[in-house]
């Protein structure tokens, strides 16, 4: 039980990454693939945050001069996640615009039906 308690964030993060990866690999519908990419991104962000977590930690903000600096969580992963989220949004926007164009051209979003380019 304590194993689960200790590692639940890691398990959750990698669970999300795996779900996302599986969606990308298995699904045929482009929108679902994009959703899979998004889930994977979320899992990665959660993983990064979990790495910097300190038990019973607080946010690293000195909102008033009395705040003590002990037990503050690591600020670096939070900064990294901020960047990673923005990058995820950027990729998502581009992928969706490509999906719109793809649908205009082929009339379908099923990736198995879109196989004009040979390997």
């Amino acid at each position: 039980m304590s194993f689960l308690q200790n590692n639940i964030y890691y398990i959750g993060a990698f669970g999300l990454i795996m779900i996302g990866l599986l969606t990308v690999l298995v699904k045929h519908n482009l929108i679902k693939v994009i959703i899979g990419l998004s889930i994977m991104d979320t899992g990665i962000n959660l993983f990064l945050i979990a790495i910097g977590y300190l038990r019973n930690g607080t946010a690293p903000i000195f909102s008033s001069p009395e705040v003590e600096s002990i037990l503050m969580v690591d600020p670096v992963p939070q900064a990294l996640v901020l960047t990673a989220i923005v990058i995820g949004v950027a990729v998502l926007a581009l992928a969706l615009s490509l999906a719109i164009r793809l649908y205009k051209h082929f009339g379908t979003l099923d990736l198995h039906k879109i196989k004009e380019l040979k390997w």
């Binding site: 482009l30 490509l98 793809l102 051209h105 082929f106 990736l111 004009e116 380019l117």
Partner: peptide, 8 residues
């Protein structure tokens, strides 16, 4: 068509 497909 080819450009969009390969870009995806």
């Amino acid at each position: 068509r080819a450009g969009i497909e390969s870009s995806i």
